[in-house]
């Protein structure tokens, strides 16, 4: 189960994507500047509100980020352990535990963004925020990656199934990686060539029509909160 946009009518769904991106950046700044028990307690409250107003569930978000958790849990152990007496330094372990926890909070806030923002709005936000050709390239490219990622995942799955059916699992690791790599890459490149032809046939332009983005009164509290968090981070 991965985190993705889910249509809804929550407060966060009605916000401008740029306001939400700004809020995430401000939140991360604040979390890194105030990695103290009191600071993180306050930010936990902010996180709970962000999840609440976007309709995201903390449990689903943690499940989506489960691969990050072992390292976050191991960090404090590595920080606390020392070779030689006193063997364990609890103070350093505690500091790293706080640092791990702030990462969890930042991940949860980004889960709220993912749940409440459709891809085309994110794309439009990128193109509005990054000026000129660079933004146009990023916007178009991000759209293409979204389009082709599931297709290529399917390609790789079929290649591996076919290989497994022919006892490919008996080969050495390098041979298996090479086989998946060659077949996967060949298909990706063939798709890229066909895609390029299709783009040219449809007059692929640097200035396509994007969904209209405009900041409204709804965004004011989020922008105010972002400014407050960023200011708190600097103080």
């Amino acid at each position: 189960m991965t985190l993705s946009y889910r249509p809804d009518d929550t407060f966060a769904h009605r916000l401008d994507p740029r306001a939400k991106l700004g809020f995430q950046a401000a939140f991360a700044l604040a979390a890194f500047a105030h990695t103290t028990p009191r600071g993180l307690l306050a930010l936990t409250g902010v996180t709970a509100v962000a999840l609440r107003v976007s309709g995201a569930s903390a449990r689903e978000a943690m499940w989506a980020y489960r691969f990050a958790l072992p390292l976050l849990a191991a960090g404090p152990v590595f920080a606390a352990a020392t070779l030689g007496p006193p063997w364990v330094r609890p103070a350093e372990g505690f500091d790293t535990a706080l640092a791990s926890y702030r990462v969890v909070l930042v991940l949860l806030v980004s889960a709220a963004y993912l749940r409440s923002t459709p891809v085309r709005e994110s794309r439009a936000a990128i193109q509005h925020l990054v000026p000129g050709r660079a933004g146009q390239f990023l916007g178009a490219g991000v759209g293409f990656v979204f389009r082709f990622f599931p297709v290529l995942r399917g390609d790789l799955r079929r290649i591996r199934d076919a290989s497994a059916a022919r006892l490919g699992g008996e080969q050495s690791v390098v041979d298996r990686i090479r086989r998946v790599g060659v077949a996967g890459l060949a298909r990706a490149l063939a798709r890229a060539d066909r895609f390029a032809v299709a783009l040219r046939a449809r007059c692929f332009a640097w200035n396509p029509t994007l969904p209209h983005l405009s900041l409204s009164r709804t965004d004011v509290p989020v922008i105010a909160a972002s400014v407050a968090l960023a200011a708190w981070a600097v103080v």
């Binding site: 691969f67 990050a68 991940l107 993912l114 994110s122 990622f149």
Partner: peptide
Amino acid sequence: VGAPVFAGGSSGIGSLVGQ
């Protein structure tokens, strides 16, 4: 911006500033 392309199918700005 949300394609589940990072390790373990994760995504989001949080991953870029995470561990």
